[in-house]
Amino acid sequence: MSLVLDALSVRVAGGAALFAPLSLTIGPGEVSTVMGPSGVGKSTLLDAIAGHLAPAFTLSGGVTLDGRDILALPAEARRVGLVFQDAVLFPHLSVGDNLAFGLAARVKGRAARRAAVEAALARAGLAGLHDRDPASLSGGQRARAALMRSLLAEPAALLLDEPFSKLDASLRDEIRAFTFAHIRARAIPALMVTHDPADAEAAGGPVIGLTPQ
């Protein structure tokens, strides 16, 4: 299980490449960190890997996940999970339903699905919050719920887009530890983009600086 980027680069149609071509191999349970100045295209890099690139961008190079070339696949078939800066919980669903929405369709039957969601909530320290409005959660609770939702979809790799930058400093260590522990437990490769050197240090993996072209 590994995520391999091979000379990946992104350009605005008709323009120059955003950053120098990036080659990188991330092994199972490993968290690689990409750092760089604002506007260099860190989020665009994640969009390219996950399959959310806007039509105005073109992409060159290759991305393979567990040996499959994923660039030709639509976003939903890539099995690449995304964790956002501000959680992006769906406001029309309860906390538990947000997780159920992520839970793989393989788990069948209402009772079994409910049990899987409750177990995930408990693991995230959110037991008893199944029917709560996501808007009523604290920042740390939202971050944990969002990570759980991503993991329940059984991704083969995880991308983290400045996942801790909106959290209070006091919460950050706790959520970092929680996130990285889950990634290691699942043994999936993860790629994180961040501004914060402390994030990179906590991740423990290789750190790549993204430089403008």
Partner: peptide, 9 residues
């Protein structure tokens, strides 16, 4: 939301 939904498959 489009990205979040599609990254969940």
């Amino acid at each position: 939301h489009l990205a979040a939904g599609r990254s969940l498959g």
